Every structure is written in structure tokens, then in C-alpha cells.
Amino acid sequence: MRLIHHPVLANYYVTYRCNAKCSFCDIWEKPSPYIQLEDVKQNLADLRKLGVNVVDFTGGEPLLHRQIDQFLEEAQKLGFITTLTTNGLLYPKWAERLKGKVDMLHFSLDSADKNEHDTGRGVACFDFVLESIKVAKSLSERPDILFTVFKHNLHQIERVYQEICLPNNLMLLLNPAFEYNQVETGEQLSEAELGYLVKFSKQKWVYLNEAFVKLRKDGGNHIDKPVCKAASTTLVISPENELVLPCYHLGAQKFPISGNLLALYKSEEVKKLIALEGRLPACEGCTINCYMQPSFAVEMNSYWWKALPSTLKYNLRKGTWKRMLS
């Protein structure tokens, strides 16, 4: 049963450029412009009219954009919940200007071992994450640690939790890695390893959407009965000011926004693509977290119930639960 019939999230790519070269991502290989402030203002107004509640300013590395603080400020003026994930390299430089503007601030950290983390990210950023934590805390910010889980770093979860999260009162977000396009993430987690994640997530200040685990055990999205509602729950906007459908990772079609996102999203051409969400050949077996999370939130089914406890846990911790309900 569909509970929400409008999009709830915008993944706003401010640039595809990145100052890291993560082994599990190909976005940094793409040439990219930077989004323009006037386009952001217009698009945010239209996103609000469409019912979107959360705007994730993403990339690439979003802090490479020199106007990122202005984007966040505009989003907050319109009442959006704002999210931003960074590798930490530039956060100390930006911290003062970002203070109070990011509701859900995530620092990416995949190991408590400096060499292991930096090798996976393709750049020496471990020390910058630790520095970013100190700076954020000095400004009374409450960042989270986003841990992308692979088979090879599963053993590091306990160390990151005990050595970094607990001493700093940070929430640990467990993000099971996913494959897309030609990007490989190694051997997938076994059922026993997924069970370990679920068990670990029962501790305080640890977040895991258990619907992610169920989806993997079920073999991912199936095109004959799709779980994915990517196009109807999430608007993806590119640095070129295009609407990307059905999602960034497939990017089947791109539509120039041309100053009227509202009309574009409601156009017949876009509606036809939305109707194909989760049903395209490339959608078979998909487990991409950033589109499954909103998909689980809009339709009452077994995934909705699995996602509910962790969603409540996280939003109660962040103080955003009332705004989520709106």
C-alpha cells in the first residue's frame, strides 16, 4: 500500500569533481561543471512545491563548491532537512561557514587503521577526518561517522565504534557497499556477515537500516515485482542543471531543467520514465542504498516495517523526527 505519493528526497549533485579517488566509486573520473546559485534557488522552490522534505547536497566532494554554504542556507530557509557527506579533507576550512546549516553531517570513515582507510579512499584523508571531528565538536556540531561496509573491513567496525564514535559521542552509520555499472566492490557480504551487522546495530548510537539487509537476502530488486521507487521518491539533479532519470547510477535519460523543474517533473515524458522505475533490465538485483532508503519509506510492506525502527532511532537522535513526519 502506497502511503506517500510525492517525492520525498532530492539528491542534488553540486559537482562530480572529487579530491579523493575511492576504489568503489567512479564519479571522480567524470569531468564536471559546478551548479549555479540561481538555478539552485529556483529548483529548491520547485522541490518544495513537489513535496520534497530532504535535500542531500552531494558529489563528488560537495565542499569543493565555493558556494555550498549558500546552497545550504537557501535550503534551510525553505524548511528542508539538509544532509551532506564529506571525506573531511576540506571540512576544517569550511566548518565556521557550515555551522548550523547541515542537519545530517556525515564524515566518511571506513577503518580505524589510517593506512587501510587512506588506501581505500585513494588519498590521505584519515587524519583530516579526525581533525574534522574535533573542529565540529568545538562548534557544537553533531556529525556522524558513515562507515561503508565491505567484506574486507568488517573487522574494523568494532574499532571505529569503540575508538572514535563512543569517545566523541558520534553516531555510527553502517552503509553496506553496493555494486553499480562497472564498479565492483568485491565479494558481497554473506548471510552470516549481514547477521553480524544487524546484531552490532542494536548498540547505542549505531544505525543500520535493516531493510538493506533484507533486500540483500532477497536478492535485491526484482523487475517483475520492484521494491525500488527511485524516480517517484527521489529527484536527481546534475551539476549541468538536468533532471536525471530514473536515478544517477543508471542515468538512462537527462532532461534540461531550464528554469521550471516543477513543470518538467509533471510532464508526460517524465511520467513515462517514472512508471518504469525498478522495471528496467539494469534494475534487476539492484541494492543501491541511496534510492532504496526513500523507497522503503513510502510504501507499507515488509521493507517499510524493517526500516521503521532504525529510521526512528536515527531521527530521534538527530532531532529531525517531527520534520520528517511533516
Rank of each mutant, 00 (worst) to 15 (best):
L9Y: 07
L9R: 01
N11V: 06
V14H: 04
N19V: 05
N19F: 02
S23K: 01
F24A: 03
C25L: 09
K30I: 06
S32H: 06
I35K: 01
Q36K: 14
E38R: 14
V40D: 05
K41L: 09
Q42I: 10
N43K: 04
A45C: 14
A45G: 12
A45E: 14
D46G: 12
L47Q: 04
K49F: 12
G51F: 13
V54A: 05
V55K: 04
F57I: 05
F57V: 01
G59Y: 05
E61D: 15
R66M: 02
I68H: 01
F71S: 01
F71H: 04
F71A: 00
L72Q: 03
E73V: 11
A75F: 02
A75P: 01
L78D: 10
I81L: 10
T82V: 06
T85A: 15
N87A: 11
G88P: 05
G88S: 08
L89A: 00
Y91A: 00
E96N: 14
E96W: 02
L98I: 04
H106L: 14
F107Q: 00
S108Y: 08
L109T: 05
K114D: 10
K114R: 15
T119E: 06
G120T: 01
R121T: 07
G122Q: 03
C125Q: 04
C125M: 11
L130F: 10
S132Y: 00
I133A: 03
K134C: 11
K137H: 10
E141T: 09
P143N: 13
I145T: 07
L146S: 13
K151A: 14
N153E: 11
N153Y: 10
Q156I: 09
E158Q: 15
I164H: 09
L166F: 08
P167H: 07
N168A: 11
L173C: 11
L173H: 11
L173S: 08
L174S: 03
L174P: 02
N175Y: 12
T185E: 01
T185L: 04
T185H: 01
Q188M: 09
L189M: 06
S190W: 11
E193M: 08
L197R: 04
S201H: 00
K202H: 15
K202C: 13
Q203P: 10
Q203Y: 10
K204S: 09
W205P: 04
V206M: 04
L215H: 00
R216F: 10
G219F: 14
G219M: 12
H222D: 15
I223R: 07
D224N: 15
V227C: 06
C228A: 15
A231E: 02
T234W: 00
T234Q: 09
I237M: 07
P239S: 08
P239H: 05
N241F: 09
L245Y: 04
Y248K: 03
L250I: 13
L250F: 11
G251D: 03
P256T: 07
I257Q: 05
L261G: 00
L261C: 08
L262V: 09
K266H: 12
S267I: 05
E268L: 07
K271R: 15
K271F: 10
L273W: 07
A275S: 13
E284M: 12
I288W: 00
I288S: 00
N289V: 15
C290V: 15
Q293K: 14
Q293D: 14
S295A: 12
S295Y: 04
F296N: 01
A297F: 08
E299C: 12
L312I: 15
N315P: 06
R317G: 05
M324W: 15
M324I: 14
L325P: 09
L325T: 08
S326G: 11
